[in-house]
């Protein structure tokens, strides 16, 4: 099975990295323009997933304490990239959430509505 290849990001108290088929996003996203560093990472990860024909990935946000709406937009953008792929190239994303960070339940539940066939979440 292929691996996600994306250059890790560590910026303004936020860390993003990929290990195997899991993307880890941690820290606290309060930045006014988080797209400046989230977008290139997500784009690279997305291209790597498609190129390597990875069918299913996990996005671990259990250590993501806060995500502002500008950060939510970056995740929406990722989902839209997925939605625009031809059916045979689409991949599943399972978000790993933590019940400790209350925003995750409500925010991620809404995000999943954007493509309930390919997105799911598990809360630890």
């Amino acid at each position: 099975m292929g691996e996600i290849k994306a250059k890790p990001v560590s910026n303004s108290g936020i860390d993003m990295k990929a290990t195997g088929t899991t993307v880890y996003i941690s820290g606290s996203i309060n930045h006014p323009r988080p797209g400046e560093f989230m977008e290139p990472f997500i784009q690279e990860a997305h291209e790597s997933i498609v190129t390597n024909n990875i069918q299913e990935i996990k996005v671990d946000i259990t250590n993501l304490k806060f995500l502002n709406s500008a950060g939510i937009r970056e995740l929406v953008d990722w989902v839209m990239k997925l939605n625009h792929l031809p059916e045979e190239k689409k991949y599943k994303i399972e978000f790993l959430c933590s019940s400790e960070h209350k925003w995750q339940e409500s925010s991620m539940s809404t995000l999943i509505y954007l493509n309930s066939n390919y997105l799911s979440k598990v809360t630890k």
């Binding site: 797209g35 977008e39 937009r73 929406v76 953008d77 839209m80 809404t110 995000l111 509505y113 954007l114």
Partner: peptide, 11 residues
């Protein structure tokens, strides 16, 4: 959901 979709149209 509508706003989410709109938000990515003009970043």
């Amino acid at each position: 959901i509508y706003r989410m979709k709109e938000s990515v149209k003009n970043k």
